[in-house]
């Protein structure tokens, strides 16, 4: 039988340099994986989605950058660590996924909703805003209207933002 189009098996060229960059960024255990699939079988997100942890780790070992970085699957992990607990080779799977996500963001692959969370964290010190309803509720509970965090402290907020100017987070997420 002749296969065509989507059915055709393709051979992908490994990219050892990309695989090496994952290891260098902290994924030292990447090559310990022998593809048993315990991770995929343990993944609660994999029950609901097409995300397959074993497959992602294989692609990472081969350095298949173009497959990994733009994919939605990369963002289906909830960082629950169940796979890490059960991995017979003690691969730091969750850490490797977070390294790959860092690479994806650097290449500009970032969901708009994630940009919003990141920008709120940068500009207010918190991932979510403090709205008037909750200010009122805090007062009713006898708490300070604003929590004693970065929120109500201009000097602390200035320091907070300065750190992200130094690390380049402001530019990374495309905010101000």
């Amino acid at each position: 039988m002749i296969l065509a189009g989507d059915e055709m098996a393709t051979v992908k060229e490994p990219n050892p340099a990309f695989a090496e960059s994952i290891i260098k960024a902290g994924g030292k255990t990447l090559n310990l994986c022998y593809q048993c699939g315990t991770c995929t079988a343990s993944c609660p997100s994999g029950r609901q989605t097409a995300f397959r942890t074993r497959k992602l780790i294989r692609k990472a070992q081969l350095g298949l950058k173009e497959d990994i970085l733009p994919s939605d699957d990369l963002w289906m992990c909830t960082t629950c660590y169940t796979c890490v607990e059960r991995c017979p080779r003690q691969v730091d799977i969750t850490d490797i996924i977070m390294i790959l996500r860092n690479f994806a963001v650097k290449e500009g692959y970032m969901a708009e909703t994630h940009k919003k969370t990141a920008s709120s964290m940068m500009n207010t010190g918190h991932t979510i805003p403090l709205t008037n309803d909750y200010k009122e509720m805090r007062k009713r509970l006898g708490l300070s209207e604003q929590p004693p965090t970065v929120l109500g402290d201009p000097k602390a907020l200035e320091d907070w933002k300065k750190i992200m100017q130094i690390t380049g987070f402001d530019k990374l997420i495309g905010g101000k």
Binding site: T78, R101, N102
Partner: peptide
């Protein structure tokens, strides 16, 4: 006083480990 977001392990750490 003056502490901020932890920052969130699933989002912020996924975006940029250095930050």
């Amino acid at each position: 006083e003056g502490a901020g977001c932890c920052p969130a392990p699933g989002v912020i750490r996924s975006f940029d480990q250095t930050t």
